[in-house]
């Protein structure tokens, strides 16, 4: 499926490259040449790989193992919410909550492990602000 998605991506970007508005025609190759060539080759490689996968599909199906991809997706969702939350409620509360949420998703149930969340968050904040002079967001709600 991924090669199909990349092939679609290459074809869409190939179409977009043909629509670039040239600023002038004094050059031998324009701004569309390089992206068109790249998209074209990428599409060709995806077709090659799709054919290879299709030929060996029966072997792969036998070896396929169930993976815990739902957990990875949930961790990704936490990170996306964490990024937005950091802007809204500030770095410290967002990081403590985000850290704890990931620990929970990873199956940690011992409460002592959750103490790592505030320790890590305060330590990182201190290092960024005091040692590296990089200030993390305070949160728009509290400003």
């Amino acid at each position: 499926m991924i090669y199909g998605a990349i092939l679609l991506f290459a074809l869409v970007f190939l179409f977009l490259a043909t629509q670039f508005q040239e600023a002038g025609d004094m050059h031998a190759i324009g701004s569309g040449f390089y992206p068109i060539l790249t998209c074209f080759i990428l599409a060709g490689l995806c077709i090659m790989q799709l054919v290879t996968e299709w030929r060996t599909a029966s072997d792969d199906q036998a070896e396929a193992e169930p993976a815990n991809w739902q957990r990875a997706l949930m961790v990704f969702a936490v990170l996306a919410v964490y990024g937005l939350g950091m802007m809204l409620i500030g770095y410290l509360p967002a990081t403590i909550l985000g850290f704890m949420a990931i620990l929970f998703l990873l199956g940690v149930r011992r409460w002592t492990w959750y103490l790592a969340a505030p320790v890590f968050s305060f330590a990182l904040s201190y290092i960024f602000a005091e040692v590296f002079m990089v200030f993390l967001p305070a949160g728009s709600l509290f400003q």
């Binding site: 290459a10 970007f13 050059h27 790249t38 080759i41």
Partner: peptide
């Protein structure tokens, strides 16, 4: 495939010669 994906990503932005916007 990874390399050519990277090459397309590298095309995002203003064209280095004519400053034509790309992607």
């Amino acid at each position: 495939i990874g390399g050519f994906l990277g090459l397309i990503v590298a095309c995002i932005g203003l064209d280095p010669i004519t400053s034509t916007p790309r992607y």
